[in-house]
């Protein structure tokens, strides 16, 4: 372990903005994809079999 304090860990040797900026956006995007997929699946399963003559997008 090379970090002597939490502040040192978050500072990332002065590169905190870059390291956390890269990781945070990646994490947010991946989480957003998972949430979007779960919600789309739920909606589609709820609609399943209804309105057979209406073309859904």
């Amino acid at each position: 372990m090379q970090w002597s304090s939490a502040a040192e860990f978050f500072a990332m040797g002065g590169y905190g903005l870059y390291v956390w900026g890269a990781y945070a956006i990646s994490a947010v995007l991946i989480a957003a994809e998972v949430v979007a997929l779960i919600r789309r699946g739920r909606t589609l399963r709820a609609q399943r079999g209804r309105n057979p003559h209406v073309q859904s997008d």
Binding site: M12, G13, Y15, Y18
Partner: peptide, 8 residues
């Protein structure tokens, strides 16, 4: 060389 920036 790159310090902690390389962790990306």
């Amino acid at each position: 060389q790159q310090g902690d920036a390389y962790r990306i």
